[in-house]
Design a protein around this nucleic acid. Structure first.
Length: 789
DNA sequence: ATAGGGTTAG
C-alpha cells in the first residue's frame, strides 16, 4: 500500500525517470489494481505519456483506447506518437477529435500536427491550423514557428500543381470515430511486410521472371487486366493507409520536386521568420533548406552568411542543405570548401553530409572522389548507397553501378524506389533486358511501379532493350505523364523508327500542357531524322526557338544535319553545319560523312573527312567510313591507300560483334566465330538459308568488305558475319513464330541488311536488329527503317 | 521542430 503510493508519487513528480518498458507496465498494473477513484484518467495519461515516450506501440494504443474521455495530456501524447510513427492521418484525426471534445491544445501539440500536414502535403489543413495557432497567439512559440516554416517551405507551389488538396479533411470527415475502429496496429505490420520484398533471396528470382512473363503475355494479348497495376494493387493498395504508404515511397515526391521555381509561400515563410521573437539554429536551417530546395540558391547562401552575423555556426544540417546547391551549380571549388569545413568540424563522417558530398562530386564528374568518400564512410545507409550508385550510373560507369547495387543487397540494405530508378538506366544502356526484367519484377511486387521516376526509367529501359510494345504499354498505363516520361517514350519511338507515333506523342504532350524542353526536342528531331521528315523537323526546330525560347544546342543541330544528310540534301547539310551557332564537333560531321557514304558522294565525303580530321584528330572512325565510301563507289585504289594510312597510324577497326539473348543468357558472335558449341548446326542452317536466299534473288554484295581476300572467300566471310550467326542461332533455339532479337555493336554493312531482309521472309519471323544507333524491325522481307541506316 | 539520394539526351 505504502509502496504503491510512493511509486505513484514518484511517477507524478518525475515521469521521465521511468526508462524501461517493465517499469512502465508495472506502474500501469499498480494503477489498475488500486483503482483510484479520483484522478484515474490523469494518472493513466501519465502512463500513456511514458508509453509513447518509450514508443511502445501496442501498449500506447491499447491504453489510449481504454480512455473514454482523454485528458489533454493523453491527446498530446497520442498525437505526438502518431506523428512520430508516420500515422499522419491518425494524428490529425486525433487533433480534430481533441478539439471536438472541448480540450485545448497547447504549444507542444502544434509541431506534431504541422508535421503531419507537411507529410500529407495538405496545405489547406495546415493553413487552417496556422490560423488557429495565430488565434491562440502561439505563433511566437519557437518550435511551432519552426514547424510552420518547414511546412510552407515543403509545400511550396503545391497549389500550382493541384497538390493533394484535402486528404486529411476528407479522411477526417469520414471517420469521426477513427479511434474506436483503430487498425493502426495491423497496418503497421502490413507495411513492414510490404517493405520486406526480399531482394536477398536468390530463389525469388524465378518468381520475378514468371511475373514478368505473365506481364508480357498480357501486353501481347492487349489485355492489361491482371497486369502490373492489379498485381501491385493486391499487394499495396490493400493498405488502409495508402496515402501514408505513397508518401513514404516517394510517390508524392513529384509534386514537391516539381515546385522548383515558384516562390509561392516564400512570403509566408519570411513572415513567420521575421515575426519570431527567438530564432535558433533550427529556424535558420529550416529557412535555408527551404530556399535551397526551391531553387533560390542565392537567398540560401545569403542566409548562411547572415546566420554567422547572428553568431550561429553552420552545423551538419546547414551543410547538407548547402551542398546540393553546389552540386546543382557544378561548382566543385565551393563544394570542396564545404568539404573542408565539414572535415574541420568533424561532420565528414556524418551520413547525410557523406551522401551529399558523394552526390556533389559525382555531379561535377569527379566520381573517383565520390567512390573514395563512399569507401571512407564509417556508416552507410540506404541513401549513401543510392548516391554512389546513381553517381556511377550517371557518369557512365554502368558495371561499377551494378557491382555496387549487388554489394548493397549483400550488405542487407533494402533497395528503395530511388535505388530502382538509379540503377535502371544502367540496364537500358547495357541493353541487358534480362536484368531489367528481373528488376521490374521486384518493382511490381514491391508496389513501386506507379512511381513516376521508376515508370519513366522502365519505359526507357524496355525501349532501349528492344521491347517497344511493353514500353508503350507501361507509358499508357501511367496515371500522369511528365516531360521526362514523354521524352523517354518519344525517344523510344524514334529509336524503333516509329516517327509518326513519336510525333503523335510529342503533340499529345503539348496538348496535355506538358512543356517540352531541350531534351524533348532532341527526341522529336531524332524521330523526324529517322523517317526523313524534313518539313516537320524544320517546323519543330523553329517552334523550339520561337515558341519556347529554347536555344538550339549541338544535339539539335546534329539531328537536323543528320536528317538533311539522310534525305540526300548533302550540300544543304554541309551549309547548315558550317553555319551553326555552336562549334560543330567531329560527331556532327561524322553523321554527314555517313550520309555521303550512303549517297556515294565522294567529293563531299573528302571535304567532310577533312573537317573531321581538323576538328577531332583522334576520331579514327572517319578513316573507316571514308574507306568504305571509296569501296562502295568502286574506288578500290583510294580505299586501299587509305587503309595503308590507317595501318601506319595504328588504327584498328573495332571487331564487329552481334549478340542474342536466349533464355536469359547472352550469346555473342564475331564474324567467322567457330567456337560456339552450336557452331555445326548454325553452319548447316546458314548453308540451307543461303541456298533459299539465292533462289529468292539474293546476290552477295561484296563491295564493302575485305578487299584483300579472294572473291570466293569474300562470299564465305559475308555468309558468316556476326549478325547472321546470331540470327541463325536464334532460329535454332527459339520456337517458330517468336521474334528474334539481335544486337550489334557497330553500324552494319549493306549486305548484312539485305540478307536479314531475305531471312525474315524465308523463315517467316520478325527479326529485330539493334545496331549502334537504332532498331530495325524486319518482317516479310522488309525493314522498318526504309533501308537507310 | 531542421538535413542527404532518383527518371529522358548519337
Amino acid at each position: 500500500m505504502s509502496s504503491t503510493q510512493t511509486l505513484l508519487k514518484t511517477l507524478l513528480q518525475n515521469p521521465s525517470s521511468i526508462t524501461s518498458k517493465s517499469q512502465a507496465k508495472q506502474l500501469h498494473a499498480q494503477i489498475i489494481k488500486t483503482k483510484p477513484t479520483t484522478n484515474s484518467a490523469s494518472l493513466l495519461s501519465i502512463i500513456l505519456s511514458i508509453y509513447t515516450n518509450l514508443n511502445l506501440y501496442h501498449e500506447s494504443l491499447i491504453l489510449f483506447n481504454t480512455l473514454h474521455s482523454p485528458p489533454t495530456l493523453a491527446w498530446k501524447s497520442i498525437i505526438r506518437f502518431y506523428t512520430f510513427n508516420g500515422l499522419f492521418i491518425k494524428s490529425l484525426a486525433a487533433f480534430v477529435e481533441m478539439r471536438a471534445s472541448g480540450k485545448y491544445p497547447d504549444h507542444n501539440v502544434f509541431p506534431s500536427v504541422l508535421k503531419s500536414c507537411t507529410h500529407l502535403m495538405d496545405l489547406r489543413f495546415g493553413e487552417s491550423v496556422h490560423g488557429y495557432i495565430t488565434h491562440l497567439g502561439m505563433d511566437f512559440d519557437l518550435y511551432t514557428g519552426n514547424a510552420l516554416m518547414n511546412m510552407y517551405s515543403k509545400l511550396q507551389s503545391l497549389d500550382k500543381h493541384g497538390g493533394c488538396g484535402n486528404i486529411a479533411a476528407e479522411v477526417l470527415d469520414k471517420s469521426p470515430n477513427s479511434r474506436k475502429t483503430d487498425k493502426c496496429g495491423s497496418s503497421f505490420v502490413d507495411f513492414d511486410k510490404l517493405n520486406g520484398n526480399d531482394m536477398h533471396n536468390e530463389s525469388s528470382c524465378s518468381n520475378s521472371y514468371e511475373l514478368i512473363d505473365k506481364f508480357e503475355k498480357h501486353v501481347d494479348d492487349g489485355d492489361p487486366i491482371g497486369c502490373s497495376k492489379n498485381m501491385s494493387y493486391t499487394l499495396a493498395r490493400n493498405n488502409t493507409h495508402r496515402v501514408v504508404f505513397d508518401h513514404l515511397h516517394g510517390k508524392n515526391d513529384m509534386v514537391m520536386r516539381n515546385g522548383q521555381k515558384g516562390a509561392l509561400h516564400a512570403d509566408s515563410i519570411r513572415k513567420v521568420f521575421e515575426m519570431m521573437p527567438n530564432r535558433d539554429l533550427v529556424s535558420w536551417n529550416t529557412v535555408i533548406a527551404g530556399n535551397a530546395q526551391n531553387g533560390m540558391y542565392g537567398e540560401a547562401l545569403e542566409m548562411v552568411r547572415e546566420m554567422g552575423n547572428a553568431n550561429l555556426q553552420p552545423d551538419s544540417f546547414t551543410l547538407s542543405s548547402v551542398l546540393p546547391i553546389f552540386a546543382a551549380k557544378v561548382d566543385v571549388v565551393k563544394g570542396k570548401e564545404i568539404h573542408g569545413y565539414a572535415i574541420r568540424h568533424g561532420f565528414d563522417t556524418n551520413v547525410y553530409i557523406g551522401s551529399s558530398l558523394i552526390d556533389m562530386y559525382a555531379n561535377c564528374t569527379r566520381v573517383e572522389d565520390s567512390c573514395r568518400l563512399f569507401n571512407l564512410l564509417p556508416h552507410r545507409d540506404s541513401v549513401s548507397w543510392n548516391s554512389i550508385i546513381a553517381g556511377c550510373v550517371q557518369n557512365g560507369l554502368f558495371d561499377e553501378g551494378l557491382k555496387l547495387f549487388r554489394r548493397m543487397l549483400l550488405a542487407k540494405v533494402k533497395p528503395s524506389p530511388v535505388s530502382f530508378s538509379s540503377i535502371m538506366p544502367a540496364f537500358a544502356h547495357l541493353t541487358t533486358l534480362h536484368l531489367g526484367k528481373q528488376l521490374h519484377g521486384y518493382i511490381i511486387r514491391g508496389g513501386f511501379d506507379d512511381n513516376m521516376f521508376i515508370a519513366s526509367s522502365l519505359v526507357d529501359m524496355y525501349a532501349k532493350c528492344g521491347n517497344i510494345k511493353i514500353a508503350r504499354w507501361i507509358f499508357n498505363s501511367m496515371e500522369q505523364h511528365d516531360m521526362v516520361s514523354c521524352t523517354a517514350m518519344i525517344m523510344g519511338c524514334a529509336l524503333h523508327g516509329h516517327a509518326h507515333e513519336a510525333i503523335t506523342f510529342f503533340e499529345k504532350m503539348e496538348t496535355e500542357g506538358v512543356k517540352p524542353n531541350s531534351v524533348a526536342y532532341v527526341a522529336v528531331l531524332t524521330a523526324c531524322s529517322h523517317a526523313k521528315l524534313v518539313n516537320e523537323a524544320w517546323q519543330y526546330f523553329n517552334s523550339m526557338i520561337h515558341d519556347y525560347g529554347i536555344a538550339p544546342c549541338l544535339e539539335h543541330y546534329a539531328a537536323v544535319a543528320d536528317l538533311l544528310g539522310r534525305a540526300g540534301r548533302l550540300e544543304e547539310a554541309y551549309e547548315f553545319i558550317s553555319g551553326m551557332h555552336v562549334r560543330p564537333l567531329g560527331s556532327v560531321w561524322s553523321t554527314l560523312l555517313a550520309a555521303c557514304r550512303v549517297h556515294k558522294n565522294i567529293e563531299l565525303a573528302e571535304k567532310v573527312a577533312e573537317k573531321i580530321f581538323t576538328a577531332d584528330p583522334d576520331n579514327m572512325g572517319a578513316f573507316v567510313v571514308l574507306s568504305n565510301t571509296y569501296s562502295a563507289a568502286g574506288r578500290w585504289k583510294d580505299a586501299a591507300k587509305l587503309r595503308t594510312t590507317m595501318r601506319n597510324n595504328g588504327v584498328r577497326k573495332k571487331p564487329a560483334c552481334s549478340w542474342i539473348e536466349v533464355k536469359n543468357k547472352v550469346h555473342a558472335f564475331v564474324a567467322g566465330d567457330e567456337s560456339h558449341p552450336y557452331f555445326d548446326r548454325i553452319n548447316e542452317v546458314l548453308k540451307v538459308l543461303l541456298e533459299l536466299m539465292e533462289r529468292e534473288g539474293y546476290v552477295p554484295d561484296t563491295n564493302e568488305v575485305f578487299h584483300d581476300v579472294e572473291e570466293e572467300q569474300k562470299r564465305d566471310l559475308l555468309c558468316s558475319h556476326s549478325e547472321r550467326l546470331a540470327i541463325a542461332f536464334g532460329i535454332i533455339t527459339t520456337p517458330a513464330g517468336m521474334t528474334i532479337r539481335v544486337t550489334k555493336n557497330l553500324q552494319r554493312i549493306v549486305d548484312c541488311h539485305v540478307a536479314t531482309k531475305f531471312i525474315s521472309k524465308i523463315v517467316g519471323r520478325e527479326i529485330i536488329v539493334r545496331d549502334n544507333s537504332r532498331f530495325h524491325h524486319f518482317s516479310d522481307g522488309k525493314c522498318s527503317c526504309g533501308d537507310y541506316w
